[in-house]
Write a protein that binds this DNA or RNA. Structure first.
Length: 302
DNA sequence: ATGGCCATCCGTGATGGA
């Protein structure tokens, strides 16, 4: 199963690029950010014609998030983060899709720093961390995906020294990202590419894409049950080079099918010794993992 | 250090983005 996140920077202005990328990449599930359109102007007909169902939370001019799927129904579980009834920004949408729980998010930019926008970013981040704690505690296979507007480390910025005071790289914001990950989330791109230069955004100024002056700010975070299914994680950076493109590139992961709990006898008959030790079919030989990583079945027991 | 670009809206510039 292929799952992507893409900050489209205007879903209507970007529709040809979005449809071209959907046809080429054929993701199963997509989180979109920065729709920049009210609910009634979401291009649902074109997206259905491309083979996708969708839910969306729009807003005039700014923000806006959506979840697309071509693999079964989308059961919306939440729109908007809890913790601030006065928050009018459309920045979070959550749904159960194809056996996963997916939170699609667009974290505030926060510039200039300091200032009220930066304060809003930190408060929003705190609300995300609170909500994510509940998702993690559920033991469900959960993914948080979207534009986090945070470069986690110096490796994720083309020129870190120029960004130290920016709201995307400020110490408080990076610390909040660490607090989130410390709940047990896995940064999918970094786990599979620990030392590579990976960017997901290149600004429109100064020929940034051609110079590869980029930032890594779009992330896919996996709960333990999903992290162990992660097989690929990539950035479709060539899309950033298309005409009339977004300043972000699509980012995606590939998840293996959930491992089945087969009888031990069947495992031993069908596999040689190389894979048999990895089974969790009651052999007690599965590799040590954090307690949270136990299967759903175990979590449901009192 | 500055400004560069792009999308949106009852627009002819302002604002937000990162």
């Amino acid at each position: 199963m292929k799952i992507a996140t893409y900050n489209v920077n205007g879903v209507n202005g970007r529709l040809p690029v979005l449809l071209r990328w959907l046809a080429e990449a054929a993701p199963d599930i997509v989180c979109l950010q920065e729709l920049k359109a009210p609910d009634e102007r979401f291009p649902i007909e074109a997206i259905r014609a491309a083979g996708y169902d969708a839910i969306w939370h729009g807003q005039k001019s700014w923000n806006g998030v959506a979840i697309l799927s071509r693999v079964g129904s989308i059961q919306e579980t939440r729109r908007g983060l809890p913790g601030d009834p006065d928050d009018s920004h459309s920045r979070y949408i959550e749904a159960a899709v194809n056996g996963l729980l997916i939170g699609g998010l667009y974290l505030p930019n926060g510039n200039p720093r300091p200032g009220p926008k930066f304060d809003y970013k930190l408060r929003w981040f705190d609300r995300l961390i609170d909500h994510a704690a509940g998702l993690m505690a559920s033991g469900l296979p959960v993914m948080l995906a979207g534009d986090f507007n945070v470069m986690p480390t110096e490796r994720d910025v083309y020129k870190p020294e120029r960004w130290t005071d920016d709201a995307l790289f400020a110490p408080e914001v990076r610390a909040a990202y660490v607090r989130l990950l410390d709940q047990g989330w896995t940064d999918a791109l970094r786990r599979l590419h620990p030392d590579e230069k990976i960017y997901t955004f290149w600004d429109y100024f100064r020929n940034a894409f051609a110079r590869d002056a980029g930032l890594r700010i779009d992330h896919l975070l996996l709960s333990p049950a999903l992290s162990e299914r992660l097989v690929r994680a990539e950035v479709d950076s060539h899309v950033r080079g298309w005409e009339k493109t977004s300043d972000h590139a699509p980012v995606w992961i590939e998840l293996a099918e959930p491992r089945r709990r087969r009888p031990v006898r069947q495992v031993e008959e069908t596999k040689n010794g190389r894979t048999a030790p990895r089974t969790e079919a009651g052999t007690g030989t599965a590799p040590a993992r954090p307690r949270r990583a136990r299967g759903r079945r175990a979590e449901q027991q009192p």
